[in-house]
Design a protein around this nucleic acid. Sequence first.
DNA 1: GGGAAAATGTGGAACGTTCCACTTTCCGCA
DNA 2: TGCGGAAAGTGGAACGTTCCACATTTTCCC
Lengths: 338, 338
Amino acid sequence: MSRPTIVDVAKRAGVSKSLVSLVMRGAPNVSDEKRERVLRVASALGYRPNAVARSLVRQRTNLLGVFLSDLHNPFFAEVIDGIQAEAAERGYRTIIGTGDRVELSEARALDTLLELRTEGLILASPILPMRRIAEASREVPTVLVARASRSSTIDSVANDDTAGAALAVGHLASLGHRRIAHIDGGDGAGARERRRGYERAMDRHGLAREARVVAGAYTEEGGWQGVRALFSRGRAPTAVFAANDLAAIGTLSALAEQGIGVPEEVSVVGYDNTALAAVHHIHLTTVDQPRPEMGRTAVSLILERLDGERGSARHVLMPPSLVVRGTSGAPARKKVPR
Amino acid sequence: MSRPTIVDVAKRAGVSKSLVSLVMRGAPNVSDEKRERVLRVASALGYRPNAVARSLVRQRTNLLGVFLSDLHNPFFAEVIDGIQAEAAERGYRTIIGTGDRVELSEARALDTLLELRTEGLILASPILPMRRIAEASREVPTVLVARASRSSTIDSVANDDTAGAALAVGHLASLGHRRIAHIDGGDGAGARERRRGYERAMDRHGLAREARVVAGAYTEEGGWQGVRALFSRGRAPTAVFAANDLAAIGTLSALAEQGIGVPEEVSVVGYDNTALAAVHHIHLTTVDQPRPEMGRTAVSLILERLDGERGSARHVLMPPSLVVRGTSGAPARKKVPR
DNA sequence: GGGAAAATGTGGAACGTTCCACTTTCCGCA
DNA sequence: TGCGGAAAGTGGAACGTTCCACATTTTCCC
């Protein structure tokens, strides 16, 4: 006794399978009487349309493939929110695959998505080599999220890191800070742009001579090391712009250890506005990326391609915004004794 | 020029489509010569097997459906790790759906998974009414994760909250604490069990008379309110067991505000061991749930059913473990002045 | 009242695989 | 040399839908 098919319903209701198909899809030209009868029989039998068979004959799956390098990163969770919302609104379903940051399993996950005949691919920070991605993009519209691309076949959606860094610097400068240092993100995604954004913004505010960048990483440890470097020699800054929230938290810890008050003596600004930043205990001023919006945009880009509206690639940069919390304030009037 | 099918490959290679099928699936009885020829043609044509067609004829999709109430909760990310690892090992793929904690969209997401003919369903904390879940379980093996069930058709995997609470109390008691209070999780999932576990453990340690439970919630705010209640009247506790990590962090904030030192004056223990707890700045002693293991178990339960090994329901309780960090220590020798 | 048009309903081909029953070829050995 | 069985390969039915071309019935209007 396997699952009932459309034919079972048709027989039992005394109509053709075509009619049942029509009813199940809510077609207009069906008499109320038959519609009701079919519906009744279908529900009595526990009939459920088989999306597999439908996809085969229609030559479309209505499925978008989402590939994630890392489910743990809360950043992506919010991007997916946007993806799913937009996809649902436009009549698409979403299937998610991950690869644990191992090239081989990433490749397998990608193959799976392709074999399932997803109609579009959203790749969030894959570590896959560009060659593989380009191959995939030949089969199906592909958009890269949070990883910039200059490819002409692959669309991309990213946040404008340069602008975000400028936001952070602008905020600190307008509070009156001059010695604003940057703990950078090493070779992390977007770290270079943030660094450059910082330098340019310092320049624009006439603070080029005060600019100071120390090596860090997108980790707590990175922020911690950065503070060590900054406060061990030279004139101490009154504000620190860390490459991301995690580094900012490391910065906070290191400053606390050295008995330096935040924000009374030193202001700290992060980047990403992760859930961590919002925790009361931390309450970090940071730069927010419009994550759900990025997801929605990614879906839109794919649908533009699917609808044949566009052949060439689009690379979208989303504007970040500043979230002011408790770790930034005006600099101390007096020189801070070290 | 649509995608090449198995027939295109067959024609071009001068063999039957059956042979191509055999080659693509790596069947043994194929001559090296033809195998190679087929493979060459397939790759030249960019042929990729169509999983949709295969699923239709084989009557199996090799797909497991995972339903998540909330992608943001890092808890689930780790459960999914386990699910995906185990599923991959056993030859299944995974498709994830979410419902934003809205009953209607949860129902839709569930329907989608079912229509795609997933062979099993893993539901992580759905808010869906039990009736709907029972219905689904009639179509396909279903397991509930992190939501206990007594149903005889639906398997479940949860953490043993009672045991976890006992772990927390035992840890504090062995440090020498006697006045151990509990800030509870209101009507959150598992909150009742944690409360009961706390009470029983206090009893077992001969501390029944010192037991004190105040109302809280699974939020920072909940922890904050709990501290207010605990320290505004009556004899202040020397240790607090909060219902989860978020509440524990709220507790930490509130204690800091009142100038109470942790762990010198008061010890704090949380529950869940979220990433938050590991942050240096917080460094919370907490109870860990074996999340990946829970995911793996969920998959195993489904496969047991699929393999027909089992008809009746199994309800698995996983043992939690204690993670000691910096917020717990021996109680102060002297009475703490309030 | 008659005919066109609209509404309603139907049968069969097609989608791209897998699998079964079958044929052909090859090899070893009595 | 002949024969049996293994190895290699093939054709066609089947999976559960959708869609097209077509048939039948009803409605509408002059």
